[in-house]
Design a protein around this nucleic acid. Structure first.
Lengths: 137, 137
DNA sequence: TTGAAAGCCGACTGAAGTGGTTGGGATTAA
DNA sequence: TTAATCCCAACCACTTCAGTCGGCTTTCAA
């Protein structure tokens, strides 16, 4: 029931982008150093985030990445789902899943409750919230 | 962010024990058949559940397992933690973990919120709740 | 104009985790 | 005494994880 490093690292990186949000792109190298992560690995994660429209890239020297939207308009849930896939605790809780033993599966009801609870938390926190939480300390 | 089969299968098995709760032990073979699970695999899971005092075993022919407490007194959280370990979405959220970058880690605040949310859901559902949910359908 | 800085992309890899299986005990009711 | 049952440890194939590596392409700045 662990979040993989993809989700965690990606969130740390997105937080950094939010923290230094401006019209200037920020390089992967900088983010990796700032957060103590592998630049090459982060690259893979950013490809997901870009594909899902959460960040934009600027190629060439002095290039880097920028958030596609305001930090207040990007939720932790969007970031995690982009990197981890659905946050359902089991496949049978996903929309398009056809569970053969649909009836009689009380366990599924429990799993759905867990999923909803996770969703409601991560969708209620934005990158801006995270930034503000830093500033308050 | 998935629950492994350990947690899911174990919960299904415990549900079966709750459903047929009496003073007679129920054999692993029966549970495995009833829920469509591997008997040998379930065995491993039951060793955890027994170690953690959630079930008691009766050896020998006509033996099997019984819940150690009333279904209404065993929560889904206890079952899942016995099988999966802590339900924290990352190691840094566990009690005894010493995170080197303790400060400056906003991500951890988010992870803690996720953990608390999961805990409160699974600790609020008992095996009896699951049984009742079946009977209502 | 040319080199360095950056993003882009696909292949590869060692280590760990998952989801079991197998075999051989020890106990006990019938 | 035998079959049913729990107990235990080892093994295994497969997948996922957490990166690394090498070689592109694009673009700014000197």
């Amino acid at each position: 029931m662990k979040l993989s490093t993809r989700g965690r690292y990606g969130l740390m990186a997105m937080y950094q982008l939010a923290l230094e949000f401006s019209d200037e792109p920020i390089s992967l190298k900088y983010i990796a150093e700032k957060q103590g992560l592998s630049e090459n690995y982060l690259e893979q994660l950013f490809s997901n985030l870009k594909r899902d429209g959460l960040i934009q890239s600027v190629r060439g020297a002095q290039g880097g990445y920028i958030l596609s939207r305001l930090p207040s308009d990007i939720t932790v849930g969007e970031v995690l789902r982009s990197l981890e896939g659905t946050l359902a605790p089991a496949d049978c809780v996903m929309h398009d899943f056809d569970c053969s033993k649909e009836e009689n599966c009380v366990t599924k009801l429990v799993l759905v409750k867990i999923k909803n609870s996770i969703d409601s938390v991560v969708d209620s926190i934005t990158l801006r919230d995270m930034v503000e939480e830093t500033l308050n300390n």
